[in-house]
Structure formats: C-alpha cells, structure tokens
Computed example of a mutant assay.
Amino acid sequence: MIRVLIVDDEELVRAGLRLILQSSDDILVVAEATDGGGAIAAVRRHRPDVILMDVRMPGCDGMTAAEQIRDIDRTAKIIMLTTFDLDEYVHRALRAGAVGFLLKDIRPRDLISAVSTVASGSAILAPTVTKRLISTFTERDGNAMKAARAQLSILTDREIDVVDAVARGLSNAEIGRDLAISEGTVKAHISRSLAKLGLSNRVQIAILAYEARREQS
C-alpha cells in the first residue's frame, strides 16, 4: 500500500486529489495539509511514501517545505503540483530533492500512475513537458553551466553516457538497450553517479546534465 500525503491550500483541489487517489486499491491517503508547515508536521507523524505538494501556498510554501522534508525523511518521494508559470519555483523544489512535478490538469489515471511510479523508486521525468521546462530554466546562467561541467568531469565516459540518457527521460531498460548493457549495469552506473555527485535522485541528475548543455534533442 502506497501511503500518500496531499498538500494544497485549496480544499477543492485536495478533495479532488484524494478522490482520484483513493479510487486505486494500492493507494492510501494518510493525511492532508494546507501549507508547508502542515506538510512538515504530517511527514513527522505519518511518514508517507509519496507527498503531492503544491508549489505556491501561503505561509510556508512548497519549496521551503521540500527542503526541510528532505532533512527529516530522505525516503519520502515529493511530487510538486504546479503550472507553467512557476518554472523557477519548480527548479528550486527539484534541487531540494523533489522527484518531479505534475501539472494540476493531469488526467486521473496518469496521476495514479505517477504516484505508483515514484513510489517504486523512479522519477517523473518524461521527455516532453518536464524536459522542456527543465531545459528552459537551466539555460539562463553561464556560471551554472561551468559549475555543472566541472561537477560532471568526475564521472567516467560510460557514466556520462548514462547521465545523458537519464536527462533524455529514458527508463533503465531503454538506457540498457541504447548502450547495449544490462539493466542491472545501468542501475549500478546511476547509483555510482549519484554518490559521486552528491545527488539524491534521477531528476537532479537530469538538471545537472541540462546545465552542462549535455541535453540532446
């Protein structure tokens, strides 16, 4: 059973999300919160597997909460709920350890699938909306590009190949087929790259790759 915490300051949004998620036999909504402060308290009390959290809320917002939740429980998977006009906020949230983000007009079945995906240890990193948004707000800072390239220089050539594939939104199985290596080897490369780079998840790897201008069209 996947334990979910819903965080949004709008009651109707929370009710809609809860109704959708609880239609799945594999998902249990264990708590709700109206702001980041409430989310932090709920994480301490309920230890949810997945947190669906709005980016912009009064008081303690989603980004601040994500940064603090990461220190409280690194196993919790945070998915930010956002709209296209919040790119900069999403960037900060992803850096804080969120595993991805969803637009609020997501279809019910896709929401359920997304929660299941992140609960299993993967990230919400489709090579469509997510790639476009990350690419947009990481191409503005030349200093960030230089720093990212320096950070990635500690990886081996094969690890760089895997990082590039992750940034393109490929699954482990797809990366294995592209690089002619086993899925287990892909996982090992990703784990070693995360450890070397001091990162928490695949989304952060993808951001770093985009900042280094390593993305592929």
Rank of each mutant, 00 (worst) to 15 (best):
S116K: 15
L170E: 15
G142P: 15
A98L: 04
L155E: 06
G121H: 05
V129P: 01
I106P: 01
T156Q: 10
D87R: 14
G176S: 05
S120D: 08
E67R: 15
V166W: 00
I72C: 09
S116F: 07
R70Y: 12
T130F: 01
D105Y: 11
L86D: 14
K131Q: 09
I124C: 01
A119R: 06
F101Y: 15
A76I: 03
V55S: 03
L102R: 07
L81Y: 02
D61F: 04
G121S: 09
I79F: 00
E174R: 07
R107Y: 12
G169N: 06
G176I: 01
M63E: 03
A180N: 13
S113Q: 13
A126L: 14
M53T: 02
S135A: 12
D157A: 11
S113G: 11
L170I: 10
L155N: 08
R95V: 01
G97I: 08
D105R: 09
S171N: 03
E183S: 08
P127H: 08
V118K: 00
L155A: 03
A93P: 00
I51T: 06
K131S: 11
D110P: 05
R92T: 05
T136C: 06
I78Y: 02
V162D: 07
V90M: 02
A150E: 15
E88I: 06
R132T: 13
D105L: 09
M53Y: 05
S171G: 05
A167K: 10
D73A: 11
P58W: 09
D141N: 14
I154C: 13
F101I: 05
L170M: 15
L52V: 02
R92P: 00
R92V: 02
I181H: 01
G169C: 05
R109Y: 13
